[in-house]
Design a protein around this nucleic acid. Structure first.
Lengths: 381, 381
DNA sequence: TATGATTATGAAAACGTTGTCATGTAAACG
DNA sequence: CGTTTACATGACAACGTTTTCATAATCATA
């Protein structure tokens, strides 16, 4: 590896001078600068981040800790964060923690170890002690998407999130206005404030519209499709009557839809449904579900920016930035009625057909030597 | 910040001994070990990655350079890579380059500077000189998803990718078997081998099925929805006849669908359509489009694993791993016909309705103080 | 001509680790 | 009892930077 000393030797100067040229940090004569730049070019020198970081006690790196990189919402947040980071010449270390406290604890330790200059995290809040480590080490931290009970904490965190209460309120009110009085809620796990806030918004809307609240219409579980399906199953088996379902996020919504399809329950004819969070980067594919969208990109961008401002002043009072959520009315509640019926509905297929027709076809064997069974293994070239 | 020396002082030993305890690297008596562990616990010591990295000349970090983190395909690759990395106690630095050579060059320099232990990159191949820098610095590198012209290169890279030729072949053959003879291709940018290979697979399938190839039925552009729409527009305006469209990836497909909807062309009644790459993590939402799915998770996982094996032997011959692609037949080609018509079709709505009904509703103002116009700004708490 | 500011460069130390070498003690062996 | 072997610990140097301090040459000013 080529070091600053190598460059210095070739240019016939001291390492200090090379450093000055690279960082443009002090007086260097024009002639020397040119010699050095030439040497850098010739040797293909790139500064050693770790050495510099060790000296400067900075890494120019941010950590982004997400529950599920597979969810478009988080993906879009990541993109916003990355753009903001790059603009400031920072890199992003990215960790997936799957709503798993153990993993989260481990990642917090790693992140600390990495000496990142800032952390953006959507935390599982059931182990706040571990999060407190970040404060203890004075690492600028932004809590994404969620609220924490900070009563135990010495310092406060910074926050960036969507407005879950308002969003859930809008979604519920929309259903009520369409005439629904029995609205089930398939909620997320209560360890996440987003789940709690969405229930709260839902309850507030019911109250405002004078609809009685029925505890039994709520089920709780993870923010996952499989959990959404299981919760829906459970809910339907309770033998209660309800005409609509509020899914606490897009993943859960996916599971809800899956279970409804399985039972041949039509949307919106038999059941209306709304999601919190849109379900695809661009829902042009299938603009069917009525949802709340959050400004995910902006959340990520704002979080990174907040870290940068925090870096310059560690002792600034803690801040909370709440971005508005937007209701997008589509067809899954039958809101757009034509000739007495919704122009679009699910399922168009009976469940049995549905599964049969989405069969997977084996890749062809007779075509390319790369295809077929052997292709999954390594082959030397 | 608490260092190894602080721990050493508290435990009454030398820093070396602490290091030995932390890394379990040499003889330490049980009593000493316990003293040290206790001190570590008490001070909340975490090792300093950069210092260690500087000493060991390793970072325990992999770089993942992707064209578009918004695309589920890449998201899933990222997940696979992250899982594999975490299993080996490695972290992932992640960069989004948007199919932009400039950005890619910059990221290559950054990555070099970061001294990562390995790089996974889906490269824009029009600046292979810059990629060669990675080799020159002997950084283990895996090329994701694509092929490079390595003729200029001193060493060869490792590769992990899906089988684009075979996938495109399957998709095209599927269309031909359904009776299509005029199949348009909305391709990606030719700088990416995936675009070239998919055209190749398409041509091979046509040839095998004795369908004449018409150059004018292919359009080229970026792997983006907007480009997909523009290319489709261009294609339709050529005044050619064709009955089906092959979209070179999911993003392009989205644009194709958007343009067809805009022109009120029904799918599959008026036009059949297939995508390369599935369009959502879990297409349960809307199992409509016939696609080729790649083993995206496995591609990411395999790439990271390949890096780990490369690290232990830099001089091992270069390897290529090709994962099979799978055809999923759904409804966008009318393959599943009932009573003479497809059970599911697009658009159900005329374009004008379509746009009108997906109107965005403003967030409510009268509810929470967080909602409304002020909420997009920062507020101190 | 003396004084001080400006420009230009380098030597040395430090950031927090860990590998190498040296030193020592205790146990095992003949 | 002397010698080897295993166990245990520490001093020192080094990884590649950059900051601080020191030195010196050049230039303008009194």
């Amino acid at each position: 590896m080529v070091t600053i000393t190598d460059v210095a030797k070739l240019a016939g100067v001291s390492p200090v001078t090379v450093s000055r040229v690279v960082n443009d940090s002090d007086y260097v004569s024009k002639a020397t600068r040119e010699k050095v730049e030439h040497a850098i070019e010739e040797l293909g020198y790139v500064p050693h981040f770790m050495a510099r970081g060790l000296r400067l006690n900075r890494t120019f790196t941010l950590a982004l800790v997400l529950p599920d990189i597979t969810n478009v919402f988080w993906t879009t947040v990541a993109r916003g964060a990355e753009d903001a980071a790059m603009k400031n010449n920072f890199s992003i270390l990215f960790y997936n923690v799957d709503e798993d406290v153990k993993k989260q604890d481990r990642v917090v330790d790693i992140v600390l170890s990495q000496q990142v200059d800032g952390v953006m995290i959507a935390p599982h809040d059931s182990d706040i002690k571990h999060l407190a480590k970040l404060q203890h080490n004075r690492v600028p931290t932004v809590i994404l998407d969620r609220i924490l009970d900070e009563s135990q904490l010495e310092h406060k965190f910074d926050f960036v999130r969507g407005d879950s209460i308002s969003g859930a309120y809008q979604l519920t009110r929309h259903l009520v206005r369409l005439g629904h009085k029995r609205i089930a809620m398939v909620s997320g796990n209560l360890h996440a404030s987003t789940a709690r806030d969405r229930v709260l918004g839902y309850r507030m809307a019911l109250q405002d519209q004078a609809i009685p609240f029925d505890e039994d219409l709520i089920v709780y579980g993870e923010f996952k499709a499989s959990a959404g399906a299981a919760m829906t199953h459970q809910l339907l088996d309770r033998g209660l009557t309800f005409t609509s379902i509020f899914a606490a996020n897009n993943m859960i919504g996916m599971g809800v839809v899956r279970e409804l399809l399985r039972r041949n329950i039509r949307i919106p004819e038999d059941m209306s449904i709304v999601f919190y969070d849109d379900y695809a980067t661009d829902s042009d594919y299938f603009p069917f579900f009525t949802v709340i969208t959050q400004q995910a990109y902006e959340i990520g961008y704002a979080a990174a920016e907040m870290l940068f401002s925090r870096m310059v002043n560690l002792d600034m009072p803690s801040r909370t930035q709440i971005l508005p959520s937007t209701l997008i009315v589509r067809y899954s509640c039958g809101a757009q009625i034509k000739d007495g019926k919704s122009p679009l509905s699910l399922p168009v297929l009976a469940p049995s057909e549905f599964h049969q027709t989405t069969s997977r076809v084996k890749p062809i064997e007779d075509f390319s030597s790369d295809a077929g069974e052997s292709s999954a293994k390594e082959s030397n070239q």
